[in-house]
Design a protein around this nucleic acid. Structure first.
Lengths: 110, 110
DNA sequence: ATTGTATATTGCAATATTACGATTAAAGAA
DNA sequence: TTCTTTAATCGTAATATTGCAATATACAAT
């Protein structure tokens, strides 16, 4: 099917899955890492830096922007992207709640 | 295409993406949350708990097992799944390295 | 106005993912 | 053995994702 039955899951579970899906492609991981390093709003240098075609990078950037993890500012003909710090922090809270879970019932078996 | 150009990314970037992809579906998030709560090796109760068909759950479990995040033990006719604690901790190290990044160059623009 | 540069959008082909019915496999119970 | 239960696997349909060529858009410079 390819379609995900989001209705049967909680808001939180879907939220975690959505963030994770964004990080589920190495190009988007690389883009975000680069933005953290060169926050000075490097724009289409990502195309050179990452090594994928311009439309492909643009598509990945769009997904990250839709999720709110990055912001884009028009500067003449080029566009300056950078991390949306508040959203990033909010995302971390959600993800850490999931990642930092502890096993409640210690009656193990495997 | 649907195919991901893993060759052009670093080992670390692909590793992050692979873990993230596993968390990129709410069913797998739900499965893991349930295993954390009921570590007492509940098996096919997941089918009832989650609300997806048995083959679907089985498929999701397989992906999590392939990644090493869960373990499965045969107990008679049923199978007991639980979190693979060491792998989970290792995964957290990788993911936190990514999530806890800080902006290096503060010359902002947006 | 025209040209050049940077980025977004469109359209499409190839592949991946999700979901599940049907079937199979494995182990205990009758 | 045969039946039952539990879970994996197979096969397949529907949808999603990835990647890029071609094109469109937006702005600056000439």
């Amino acid at each position: 099917m390819g379609i995900t039955k989001t209705e049967i899951f909680t808001e939180q579970q879907n939220q975690i899955a959505n963030f994770a899906k964004a990080f589920g492609h190495p190009a988007r991981v690389a883009i975000l890492q680069h933005l953290f390093k060169i926050n000075a709003c490097i724009c289409g240098d990502l195309v050179i830096e990452i090594g994928l075609a311009q439309p492909t990078i643009s598509q990945h950037l769009k997904e990250l922007k839709t999720l709110g993890l990055i912001k884009g500012n028009i500067e003449g003909t080029s566009i300056c992207y950078c991390i949306h710090q508040e959203s990033w922090t909010a995302m971390k809270t959600v993800m850490n709640q999931f990642l930092d879970q502890d096993i409640e019932n210690k009656t193990n078996c495997c």
